[in-house]
């Protein structure tokens, strides 16, 4: 097992407001993010994702728990100097230009002014804002601000990057760019903790996920292991007007679209199904382990999750 880049143990946050009942935002969350991986943090609204991230970043005082980034207590400022953070819907001083904002944030991460200038140019180019570096942020669209947020998170070449809803406000091309960027970061050995509602994004890039629900960890692990349906194989075939009887009796979740048949069969029957389709004159296009969509998995998990957290 690789070293942990982020380790959260027993995180708990209870908000106490005088005259009001206590509210538990996070009951008990433990997360381990391995170095050089992309780790997804999922959960419905109010699950405790953002509060957990804020505790990790020292923005919210935890009621209990330990929080480490690269082995250092991240609730202390010194523990955050090797990480970059993109807040959800990042805000910036709007009177600054993109370049001025980058230079300001760059000056805070402890790199010299020449390096700040260099990284500003490189990162603005990397997120597609090279042409807008002299534009005042008041004139930026939501998507441009999001891109700038990502760029500032990468200042100082952090070893760990925490992205809270990075695709929020981005068009499909922007979302694709962000996915590619995360994959590039992983290729560079940078650890990414991604909090997102966009399940397709998580499914596309994450190695591991932690799913939160009502302040506790509802599931965690390798995304393939979570989504693969044990004992069933997905088959995609074309060139048949109807499924052979022997196949039809074993097939489940059958969908026909554009002349292609997609269905699942017991893994033990795969050989026989392939032979039957072959004999019927059909063509096997793909055979893969049956995989549940993350949406379906997520919904079933939440439906069976704890009802109340205290």
């Amino acid at each position: 097992m690789a070293d942990a880049a982020i380790r959260v143990r027993g995180a708990r946050k209870v908000y106490t407001i005088a005259g009001k009942p206590k509210r538990t935002a996070v009951a008990d969350v433990s997360i381990t993010v391995e170095s050089g991986t992309i780790h997804g943090l999922l959960g419905p609204n109010g699950a405790g994702k953002t509060t957990t991230l804020k505790m990790l970043l020292g923005l919210v005082r935890p009621s209990a728990g330990t929080f480490e980034v690269l082995g250092v207590d991240s609730t202390r400022p010194s523990g955050r100097r090797r990480l970059g953070f993109l807040p959800e819907q990042p805000y910036f001083p709007i009177h600054l230009t993109a370049r001025q904002a980058m230079r300001f944030y760059g000056s805070l991460v402890g790199i010299d002014s020449e390096a700040v200038k260099e990284q500003t140019a490189t990162l603005l180019d990397r997120v597609g804002l090279a042409d807008a570096e002299r534009t005042e942020l008041s004139k930026f669209s939501r998507g441009m601000l999001q891109r700038l947020g990502i760029a500032q998170a990468l200042l100082g070449s952090p070893e760990v990057v925490i992205l809270d809803e990075p695709a929020s406000g981005l068009d499909p091309v922007g979302q694709r760019d962000v996915r590619n960027l995360m994959l590039e970061l992983r290729a560079e050995g940078i650890t990414v903790l991604l909090s997102s509602h966009q399940l397709s994004e998580v499914e596309a890039v994450c190695d591991q996920v932690t799913i939160l629900n009502r302040g506790v960890v509802a599931a965690e692990g390798d995304i393939n292991a979570l989504l693969n349906v044990d004992g069933r194989t997905s088959v995609r075939a074309t060139g048949m007007g109807a499924l052979p009887v022997s196949v039809a009796s074993a097939a489940e979740d059958t969908v026909v679209s554009g002349g292609a048949w997609v269905f699942s069969v017991p893994t033990s029957a795969t050989r026989a199904v392939v032979d039957a389709i072959d004999e019927a004159g059909g063509t096997i296009v793909a055979i893969t382990p049956k995989r549940e969509s993350l949406e379906d998995y997520f919904a079933s998990l939440l439906a069976s999750g704890p009802k109340e957290v205290q």
Binding site: L57, G58, P77, S78, R81, G84, P87, L108, L155
Partner: peptide
């Protein structure tokens, strides 16, 4: 209120600083 402080504090800046 605008949360611009998040970008500052997450970079290892202490609240006192």
């Amino acid at each position: 209120e605008k949360r611009t402080v998040y970008n500052v504090l997450s970079k290892g800046v202490s609240r006192w600083e």
